[in-house]
């Protein structure tokens, strides 16, 4: 097939000049993005790649996509193949925690070495501006009176959005299995449902709503942050008397069986990467909040998050 080949080679030439190249000062790394190209985890992995390469923290960095089942397929493959290799990383997030529990995945996060939380976002509860509901208190009253009458539009079943809705119901004494949670497959679809008043409220990472909030089409009722977030004009759930705190985070982990030296080395690489200007700029342009937390502190936090997710998913009826 001469034609496509010739054109592809032309493409290759243009792309080759665009690709960042640098002398191999440090080790060559491989980052697994357990999702298809284009999604959040893939973008995280490729942003890390860019930061590490252009700031010469690593020699060449290769990103490999292993999509499937909320990241559990990539995780299982990584845990098996990368064992003990301090030059391989995997990206993941809170959604993976939910997926592991719900799918009863044979390989869990226990099988890898958590390294650092990179970014995070708090969940926001929103309504369309023309909705009669003005405060989170009204939602809670409605929920207590008739749980089914409050429909929550958000991401996939058992994901962070669902966990947040379940936690809120539980915190105000409503049976989490009665929560009328309506999963949507993409951000756009659930946003449209909230904007059109199809669901009573919308629940997702704040970033999903940011543009609509700024343009005055959505009203934020509450966020699931421990304290108010600058730039978001809304109370926390805690302020409103509901003891719920959820962060939808993304992290990076290493393979199992790392030597202490290997772990220290890769942690330092990530630490250096997180401090680079390229990475900080990426966070800014992508609108990602920096919730960097590394090493043992992150491991402890992760354990807590997993336990919390497990409990609430069991309460909702999605896990054993």
């Amino acid at each position: 097939m001469p034609v496509p080949l010739r054109r592809l080679l032309a493409a290759a030439a243009i792309l080759a000049t665009a690709a960042a190249g640098g002398p191999a000062l440090a080790a060559n790394l491989k980052i697994i993005a357990p999702a298809s190209p284009g999604g959040g985890w893939d973008q995280t992995a490729r942003s890390m790649q860019q930061a590490m390469q252009s700031e010469k923290i690593a020699g060449s960095v290769q990103v490999e996509n292993v999509p499937g089942a909320g990241g559990t397929i990539g995780l299982a493959q990584f845990a098996n193949r990368a064992k003990g290799d301090p030059h391989q990383l995997i990206v993941g997030g809170y959604v993976m925690v939910g997926a592991i529990i719900m799918n009863d995945a044979p390989v869990t996060l226990d099988a890898v070495t958590p390294l650092a939380r990179l970014t995070g976002e708090y969940e926001a509860i929103v309504v369309a501006t023309d909705s009669p509901i003005k405060t989170i208190g009204e939602v809670i009253d409605k929920l207590k009176a008739n749980p089914g009458s409050v429909s929550w539009g958000g991401g996939s079943a058992g994901g962070t959005d669902h966990i947040a809705a379940g936690l809120i119901a539980k915190a105000v004494g409503v049976d989490p299995t009665k929560v009328n949670y309506i999963p949507f497959s993409g951000g756009g679809e659930s946003l449209a449902a909230v904007l059109g008043g199809q669901t009573t409220v919308g629940v997702s990472s704040y970033g999903e709503f940011d543009a609509q909030v700024k343009s005055g089409k959505l009203r934020v009722l509450a966020i699931t942050a421990p304290e108010r977030v600058p730039g978001i004009d809304a109370p926390t759930m805690k302020e409103s008397g509901v003891d719920v705190e959820v962060q939808n985070w993304r992290m990076v982990a290493g393979p199992p069986g790392l030597t202490p030296e290997g772990k220290a080395e890769i942690l330092k690489t990530i630490d250096d990467m997180a401090k680079t200007k390229t990475w900080r700029d990426t966070l800014k342009t992508k609108g990602w909040t920096d919730t960097y937390l590394a090493g043992d502190a992150f491991t402890a936090q992760l354990k807590e998050d997993i336990a919390k997710a497990h409990t609430i998913l069991r309460d909702i009826g999605l896990a054993e």
């Binding site: 284009g38 756009g188 543009a211 342009t285 992508k286």
Partner: peptide, 24 residues
């Protein structure tokens, strides 16, 4: 509205956002 309703639109959105632009 800034709603990405297809896979491509979602990636377009990412394209906008790399310049700090939010469609809408």
């Amino acid at each position: 509205l800034g709603l990405p309703t297809s896979a491509t639109a979602a990636i377009m959105l990412a394209g906008f956002q790399q310049y700090g632009l939010n469609p809408g």
